[in-house]
Each structure stands twice: as C-alpha cells, then as structure tokens.
C-alpha cells in the first residue's frame, strides 16, 4: 500500500468497521481490495481454479462474518489470508483424496521451446498437486505456503496460527512424503528438486 503504516491501519480499521456494519459499498470495496490476495492463497494451496468459485465465496462470507473481531493487530490483507487458509484447511481435510494416475504423460504437440516449457511446467504442477492431495492437510498447507509460494517460516507460522517449530516439522514431513512419492516419477522428482533449490 502506498501510505504510511498508521494510515494503512486506520484505513483497514475504518473499512472493516463500515463493512461490518453492513454497508454494501464498503463490503464491495473490501472484496475488490482483497480478492486477489484471497485468491492467491487458495490457489497456492489447491493448485488450480477448478473449485475456487465456491471456496472464494466461502472465504469472503467467513471474512465478513468475522469482521467485527478485526482489531488491526495485523493488516487487513494478512488477516483475510489467515481466514482463507483456515477455509482451505477445512475444505481439504473434509474431502477424500482423488484417484489420479501419475503415470499418465501428456504428449506435447509443439516443438516451440516456450510452448514446450509451458506444457512441461503444467504437467509438473499437476503432478505436484496430485501428490499434495495425498498429504496430511496441515503439512500440505505449510509446504504450499513455504516452498511453493516462498513465504518465510515466520510468516507461515503466523498465517497458520501455529509455532515456527510446528511449521518446520510440517514442511519437513511434507517434503519427505513428496520425495517418497516422486521416486518413480522423474518429472515430479526434478520439479521438487528445483522448487526446494529455490527455497529461501
């Protein structure tokens, strides 16, 4: 945001107050301000836009429902992310892991290097999230936020409302499980290596 922290906090508190009072213009302003932020958090954890329309609604419903409790201790954006992550956790912990055939390799039809890279990246991402579907939800969220989204462990701990030690443990367990699953999958294995190489 382009204004000082105190002004930002006042803006957040005022917007939250107006939205919580039921003012539709303020609710819409909050929605437009935060939708990219909320979408990004959900996309990082779930890996595609496939189910996100309902989930984005759920996240904003929960955000509006909880607005009276917003005290400005963190930015409105971070507060919304925390709620969003809670929604994502509830969603993935309720559903059963789908059956995905990781051996299915899509043939790229193009010889264009950029197009080919796009296709390989898409396939690697698909395999990564298919593997994440089989991992315990808290570990998955910690891995998605820390390794895929590149957030610091401190940030992840704050967003997931847990200790940094717990986050470290979850990321480590998620990584171990993913590597185990990637043993017979060269595409996923190489992609995991690359992601972890870029991890700060």
């Amino acid at each position: 945001m382009g204004y000082p922290a105190s002004a930002a906090r006042e803006h957040d508190l005022e917007l939250a107050r107006r939205a919580a009072s039921g003012e539709r213009a303020a609710q819409r302003e909050l929605f437009l301000e935060q939708r990219t932020n909320v979408h990004r958090a959900l996309f990082r954890i779930l890996g595609s836009n496939r189910e996100l329309e309902d989930l984005l609604q759920d996240a904003f419903i929960e955000i509006f429902r909880a607005l009276p409790s917003f005290r400005g201790d963190s930015t409105l954006g971070r507060w919304c992310q925390t709620i969003t992550i809670r929604i994502a956790y509830l969603t993935i912990s309720r559903r059963r892991p789908p059956g995905v055939d990781l051996a299915l390799v899509e043939e790229s039809v193009s010889s264009d290097v950029d197009v080919r890279r796009h296709v390989v990246a898409r396939e690697a991402t698909r395999r990564l999230y298919a593997a994440l579907d089989r991992i315990e939800p808290k570990q998955r969220i910690a891995f998605a936020l820390a390794v895929i989204d590149g957030k610091s462990l401190t940030d992840v701990a704050e967003l997931t409302e847990t200790s940094m030690f717990a986050v470290k443990t979850r990321v480590w367990r998620a990584r171990r499980e993913l590597m185990r699953r990637a043993r017979k999958d060269a595409v996923l294995s190489a992609y995991l290596d690359e992601l972890q190489g870029g991890e700060s």
Binding site: R40, N49, E53, Q57, F60, A121, I148
Partner: peptide, 24 residues
C-alpha cells in the same frame, strides 16, 4: 530448463462477476 513455481492463474472477469453476485 527451470520451470519456476507454478504461476497463479487469474480468474476470468466472468468468474469474478459470478462470485460477486453469488456472494451478495
């Protein structure tokens, strides 16, 4: 050959319109 982290694919305007309408 580095693929980088998966890009966050934006929602279409139409999808956002649907979400907003259903939300209200």
């Amino acid at each position: 050959e580095r693929l980088g982290p998966p890009p966050v694919e934006p929602m279409s305007d139409l999808a956002w319109s649907r979400i907003e309408r259903a939300l209200w």
